[in-house]
């Protein structure tokens, strides 16, 4: 148990951040974090060591978060890819100060389902649109429009 606690302490912050941002809620992020580490503990015997433990854990966490997202979408209805966002034509003053981390975290929680997950995977986790599309089961063009939608919403929330 001590060894597993060490693994937890080392990797939990990255996984908790991923889960909280994907879920859009620290409470749900907490639940997901717990589920992910329980699953990791159960599957630890199947870890072959052909990847770093951190990479294995991260993949497991991403998959668990995607399962969560899919099941939530199934409950709430499929996300559409319409762009009901502020358009570029609307004049918005250029911000003068850098975006504070805490402000961005709070704004993320207020993003609509669908565009938040695409934004987290693309802009925060660094996947390209082809990978995001595959992970979320959407078209590549939809991934692009969802990320744009998220950025535009954030722009409004952070202005």
């Amino acid at each position: 148990m001590e060894a597993f606690e060490t693994v937890y302490k080392q990797h939990a912050p990255r996984i908790y951040a991923l889960a909280t941002r994907m879920a859009g809620s620290p409470d749900q992020g907490e639940d997901l974090l717990q589920e992910i580490f329980l699953q990791a503990h159960r599957k630890l015997a199947s870890f072959k060591g052909d990847a770093a433990l951190g990479t294995w854990l991260y993949r497991l966490a991403v998959n668990h978060c995607l399962d969560f997202v899919r099941s939530r979408q199934a409950r709430m209805g499929k996300v559409t890819d319409t762009l009901d966002v502020e358009t570029a034509a609307q004049p918005v003053a250029r911000r003068e100060t850098p975006i504070a981390r805490i402000d961005l975290e709070r704004a993320l929680e207020r993003l609509p389902e669908g565009c938040r997950e695409a934004f987290v995977l693309h802009d925060i986790e660094g996947y390209d649109h082809r990978e995001v599309a595959e992970m979320l089961g959407i078209a590549e063009g939809t991934s692009k429009s969802q990320v744009f939608k998220a950025r535009m919403k954030l722009r409004g929330l952070l202005s």
Partner: peptide, 14 residues
């Protein structure tokens, strides 16, 4: 600025 800030987000201590 938003994309830069997103890339710079750090892990969160649970």
């Amino acid at each position: 600025a938003i994309a830069r800030a997103a890339t710079a987000l750090e892990p969160i201590e649970p």
